[in-house]
Amino acid sequence: MIHFDNVTKRYPGGHEGLKNASFHIEPGEMVFLTGHSGAGKSTLLKLIGLLERSTRGQVRVASRNLTRLKRRETPYHRREVGMIFQDHRLLYDRTVFDNVAIPLVVSGVGHLETGRRVRAALDKVGLLNKEKAYPITLSGGEQQRVGIARAVVSKPPVVLADEPTGNLDPTLSREIMQLFDQFNSVGVTLLIATHDLALISRMNKRILTLQNSRLIRDIAPEETIGGN
């Protein structure tokens, strides 16, 4: 589903966000991406979501070669990659319902269908009763779940999450991870960047580790602590 082939990302000014990274994520896999802050986790995710383009090497998502993708095709690629951010990136002048509906409005889904799917997504993250609320009135965990509902409402095959539990306490973080596990069980490919090692060691999933912009470890689920 996600192929990285000797991918290097050099930012203007010479800093290299990612050096010669190669890996392959199968469809339906759930993978954690870990490493210290500044190790290149965000860069890697941005390359998949086409927020950045690689300087060298090839990135392929599904059957798309992102290296060759034209600029005007970027939006269509992004519709197939749900993205979740540590800072949620919600629109604070719109209701929860409207926030979650954006991906559907953007791709031209009809009115009734939008309502149905937004409520289904909100139901899944347990916020159905908050659809008319404004994000600012919600707790951090709830806001994050709005962000998750928005990322999955259009049923993208790939979901990326950048430190989704960064600001949450352990209980809330576990709940969020369980949510991701549920999406994974219906076939969604997930790549989750986090530095919460304690949390992911219990999840029994593949873990990619970055250090100083290099991919230094690729641990299969059976090798993780939880797998024993």
Binding site: P75, R89, L90, L91
Partner: peptide
């Protein structure tokens, strides 16, 4: 600005 950025992030085309 924020709205445009998020809409682009989610796959809104320039036309949209």
């Amino acid at each position: 600005h924020a709205e445009i950025e998020i809409t682009k992030l989610i796959g809104g085309t320039n036309t949209f």
